[in-house]
Simulated assay, not measured.
Amino acid sequence: MSNLLPWHPRRLNDEILSSWILRIAAGNNVSVRSLCEWLGNDQPVAALDRMAHTSPLMDSIAYAIGVEKEQVIECLPSSLHGLSRTPVCL
């Protein structure tokens, strides 16, 4: 039996973890809180983007959506430094 979620979208280019989790939850017709609880996270949902890359939840997310753990770690804001674009003022 697989624990792969029925709907597991790929992460968008510079998407952060909370956004990706929101899309995964919506596609599986569950709340973000319910999804996080199913994945074994008992922390407040707001803490997703501040999570340590060593958190066991990283493994749970990777397993549930069928990707390598490194792909999940890449969406933590601390991994995205340098990717933000400087707005151009006109």
Score class of each variant (00 low, 15 high):
26 A>K: 15
78 S>H: 13
70 E>H: 02
47 A>E: 14
77 P>D: 11
17 L>P: 02
49 D>L: 10
63 Y>H: 14
26 A>V: 03
89 C>K: 12
28 N>R: 03
6 P>S: 13
59 D>S: 12
13 N>S: 11
23 R>W: 02
33 R>K: 14
35 L>E: 13
20 W>R: 04
29 N>L: 11
40 G>Q: 08
59 D>G: 08
3 N>K: 09
72 V>C: 07
90 L>H: 14
21 I>A: 08
22 L>E: 14
47 A>W: 13
13 N>W: 06
86 T>Q: 15
12 L>G: 02
65 I>W: 08
44 P>N: 05
78 S>D: 13
62 A>K: 10
39 L>G: 03
57 L>G: 12
8 H>I: 01
70 E>D: 15
11 R>A: 14
3 N>T: 11
29 N>C: 11
33 R>Q: 10
11 R>N: 04
1 M>D: 11
84 S>K: 14
56 P>A: 09
57 L>F: 04
36 C>H: 00
73 I>H: 00
16 I>R: 14
4 L>G: 00
24 I>T: 10
23 R>D: 06
67 V>G: 07
47 A>I: 00
24 I>V: 15
42 D>T: 15
38 W>Y: 09
13 N>V: 11
25 A>T: 01
70 E>N: 10
58 M>E: 06
20 W>A: 12
11 R>E: 08
40 G>E: 10
51 M>V: 03
26 A>M: 06
41 N>K: 04
28 N>T: 01
26 A>D: 07
18 S>E: 07
17 L>M: 13
64 A>Y: 03
14 D>M: 06
58 M>L: 09
88 V>W: 09
37 E>R: 15
14 D>F: 11
24 I>W: 03
53 H>N: 05
19 S>I: 04
5 L>N: 06
7 W>P: 01
44 P>Q: 08
47 A>C: 05
42 D>F: 03
54 T>S: 15
83 L>Y: 07
52 A>I: 02
27 G>D: 03
53 H>D: 06
20 W>V: 02
57 L>R: 02
46 A>H: 12
28 N>S: 04
33 R>C: 01
7 W>H: 06
54 T>W: 02
27 G>V: 03
31 S>M: 05
84 S>H: 13
19 S>M: 08
31 S>F: 01
43 Q>W: 04
79 S>M: 12
71 Q>C: 06
34 S>P: 00
19 S>N: 07
55 S>G: 05
15 E>I: 03
4 L>K: 15
9 P>N: 10
30 V>H: 02
37 E>C: 03
26 A>P: 00
68 E>C: 05
73 I>Q: 13
38 W>L: 10
79 S>D: 04
73 I>T: 15
21 I>P: 02
23 R>C: 03
9 P>V: 02
66 G>A: 09
7 W>L: 02
86 T>C: 07
47 A>G: 00
41 N>C: 15
28 N>D: 07
41 N>H: 12
12 L>Q: 13
